[in-house]
Simulated scan of single mutants.
Amino acid sequence: MGHEHATAGADGTVGTEPAPAPGPDALLQRVLDETAALRTQLADLDRRLQAEQARAEAREQVIAHQRDELDALRDERRGRHLRPLVVGLAKLRSELLAEDTDTAVHYADTVATLLEGCGCEPVAVAVGDVFDPAAQRVRRAVACGPDQHGRVLEVTAEGWLERDGGRVLAPAAVVVGRHTPADQDEETGHPEEAHHA
Rank of each mutant, 00 (worst) to 15 (best):
A126R: 13
E99A: 13
L82I: 00
L92E: 01
V152Y: 02
Q50L: 15
L82F: 09
R77I: 10
R163G: 02
A112T: 05
A141H: 06
V152W: 06
L73M: 13
L97V: 03
A112G: 03
L97C: 01
R163L: 14
G166I: 02
V152P: 01
C120L: 10
D132N: 11
A64V: 07
R140K: 11
P171M: 01
L70N: 08
A104R: 07
V127R: 03
R77T: 11
V142M: 05
G150S: 01
R47P: 05
A108N: 05
P133F: 00
A56H: 12
V155N: 05
V86L: 02
D129G: 03
L161P: 04
V125I: 00
E57A: 14
L153V: 07
V125E: 00
L114D: 03
R137Y: 08
D164W: 11
L169C: 05
A112F: 05
D71S: 10
A54E: 13
Q61I: 08
L115M: 04
V62K: 12
H106D: 13
D102H: 15
A72K: 12
D68Q: 14
R55A: 15
D129T: 06
L97T: 01
A134N: 06
L89V: 07
I63D: 15
Q61T: 02
A72P: 06
D102G: 15
L161K: 08
G79Q: 10
A126T: 09
E116P: 13
T101D: 04
A135N: 00
R67D: 06
V168F: 00
V123L: 07
Q61R: 15
D68M: 15
R48P: 15
R67A: 14
V111H: 02
S94K: 14
A135W: 01
G119D: 04
C144T: 15
A143Y: 03
G145C: 03
A56E: 10
F131L: 06
D129R: 03
L115E: 01
R67S: 04
A124D: 12
D147R: 11
E158C: 05
D68A: 15
G150W: 07
A141K: 09
A108L: 04
L153I: 01
E121I: 01
R93Y: 07
W160F: 09
V86C: 02
A98Y: 03
E57N: 11
L115D: 02
Q148G: 09
E99G: 10
A56N: 11
C118R: 11
H106F: 11
T113M: 10
P84M: 05
G79S: 03
D147M: 10
A108D: 04
E60S: 12
W160V: 03
D100T: 01
E60N: 14
A54G: 10
G166M: 05
D68H: 15
R80F: 13
G165Y: 06
E95Y: 04
A143K: 08
Q148M: 11
R83N: 08
H81A: 12
E76H: 12
E60W: 11
G119Q: 07
E57K: 14
A98E: 01
E57I: 10
E154D: 06
D46F: 15
E69P: 09
P171F: 02
R67I: 08
R137E: 06
D68K: 15
A64T: 00
R67V: 07
A58P: 07
A134D: 02
G150C: 00
R59Y: 14
G117M: 06
A170M: 13
D164R: 13
E158F: 08
G165Q: 10
K91M: 07
D132P: 05
R167I: 09
C120S: 03
